[in-house]
């Protein structure tokens, strides 16, 4: 049995905007294991992104507890959360979020400069199949290429977990597959625990386990008997 990496117990997140209270999460609980590929599915507003933001240390829960390798994230200060993100977590976002004024290599270097034991930016870009385009600016890259730069940037620090929020959301199926292949390679070769949020139900087939979100909570978890390669996924 692999070790537990995240143990999430009963977290609730309430946003207040003016007079309106929004329950983004209601008593959500889940456990993620070392080295697994988890896919999170659910309609928009079901709380997947909030869940991911909280376990990634981007946001804090209103109540409940998040344990990471036996550490209680809920008790972390802002500074501790910054260090947690810096050293242990890699993020990939739907809109890539590259710095437009930096080249592919420099975008990756942004992370490697502050990591303890990083890959070289070139190596990381090689891993996602972009070795030839390292000196291009984001505006000179296609959407899929930009997303792969973002993945390279996320994994260059050798994170313990890789959290991806709709990584293929803005891509067509062909480039989407390239991105998923990059994620899968990293999961298998580096053993990085990976959580992927998606709208695309097809993607669930490449996961070890699938978490279904509804109304701010994890409604069920399904273990995949048979996993598919990204190329085999139907969009």
């Amino acid at each position: 049995m692999p070790e537990e990496i995240f143990v999430v117990e009963d977290i609730t997140k309430i946003y207040r905007t003016g007079e309106v209270e929004v329950h983004a999460l209601r008593n959500a609980s889940a456990t993620l294991y070392e080295g697994e590929m988890a896919v999170m599915l659910g309609p928009s507003g079901s709380g997947k992104s909030t869940f991911l933001n909280i376990i990634g240390g981007l946001d804090t829960a209103t109540s409940g507890r998040v344990m990471f390798r036996g550490l209680d994230l809920t008790g972390f200060s802002q500074h501790q959360l910054t260090l947690f993100r810096r050293d242990r977590v890699g993020f990939v976002f739907q809109f890539y979020n590259l710095i437009p004024s930096l080249t592919a290599r420099e975008n990756v270097a942004l992370v490697t400069e502050i990591s303890r034991n990083p890959l070289k930016p070139e190596e990381a870009l090689e891993l996602v199949g972009l070795g030839a385009r390292i000196d291009h600016f984001p505006a000179q890259l296609s959407g899929g290429e930009q997303q792969r730069v973002a993945i390279a940037r996320a994994i260059a620090k050798r994170p313990e977990v890789l959290l991806c929020d709709e990584p293929t959301g803005a891509l067509d199926s062909k480039t989407g597959v390239l991105v998923l292949e990059a994620l899968s390679t990293i999961n298998e070769e580096l053993g990085t625990t990976t959580a992927v949020i998606t709208h695309n139900a097809g993607i669930r087939q490449m996961a070890h386990r699938v978490f279904y979100f509804a109304d701010g909570t994890v409604s069920r978890v399904v273990v995949n008997k048979k996993r598919l390669e990204p190329a085999q996924i139907e969009w």
Partner: peptide
């Protein structure tokens, strides 16, 4: 805004 958020997400301190 997003770049700032990103830098923080990447582990740069405020």
């Amino acid at each position: 805004r997003e770049q700032i958020g990103l830098m923080k997400a990447l582990g740069y301190g405020s």
